[in-house]
Design a protein around this nucleic acid. Structure first.
Lengths: 113, 113
DNA sequence: CGGAATCCAGTTCGATACTG
DNA sequence: CAGTATCGAACTGGATTCCG
């Protein structure tokens, strides 16, 4: 089921539930791409080098069902699917930013190990 | 590292690295306990109902090696080991709090699944 | 009391192949 | 282009046992 760090049960703690939403292996990276605007599947796939199609699809589906990502399908050939953030997804921005700043401030010395 | 949802490689993105630090299955819960002050191993074990000794030890060791938890061993019988937050661990508090607020504000309607 | 070691089931993930 | 299906390998976490 879930790819999360956290198990599949709904956590009782708000912090844990938030972590379930953003804690997936690729989710913060997908969020970062989508903070930059609407992206097609292929764009995300190329931007997140290393992710497989399977994982990208899986993570996007979870984010969609969590209500933070919107999936727009264009019925045409070749297919075109666009992903964007919902308002709920946008509301995560301050959290991601504070995590970004903490990472920069406290972990960057260790990068070159 | 963790099941941490995140793989064992050091991430290139500060947000991901931060997530590696707090993203473990039980880490935010352990942090919450330790925000309340120094705790013994047994106290943590009882507070986090459901966690196994193995997992508690494992998560604490990772947090220690990430520099956010301090482990103080008292050489006596019976053994006594106390865990506390380092200043780096304390510095995570704003992030955890913003996650807490986001969880309350945006996810609480769903709690009663 | 606070672990370490072992074993094992379940889950996750990557690679690959196929499709509308 | 944007997926789905399938198959193993690897990793994870739980239960249990033993130890200083």
């Amino acid at each position: 089921m879930e790819a999360q760090a956290v198990g599949s049960e709904r956590a009782n703690c708000p912090v844990e539930r938030t972590l379930e939403v953003i804690g997936g292996r690729w989710k913060v990276l997908i969020l970062r791409e989508l903070f930059g605007g609407i992206k097609r599947f292929g764009q995300l796939h190329r931007a997140l080098s290393g992710i497989t199609q399977k994982m990208l699809t899986q993570q996007l589906r979870e984010m969609e069902s969590d209500g933070i990502v919107h999936r727009e399908v264009y019925l045409q050939v070749p297919p075109k699917v666009e992903y964007s953030l919902t308002p709920l997804g946008e509301s995560l921005k301050p959290i991601i930013q504070s995590m970004h700043e903490w990472g920069i401030r406290h972990l960057d010395r260790d990068v070159k190990n």
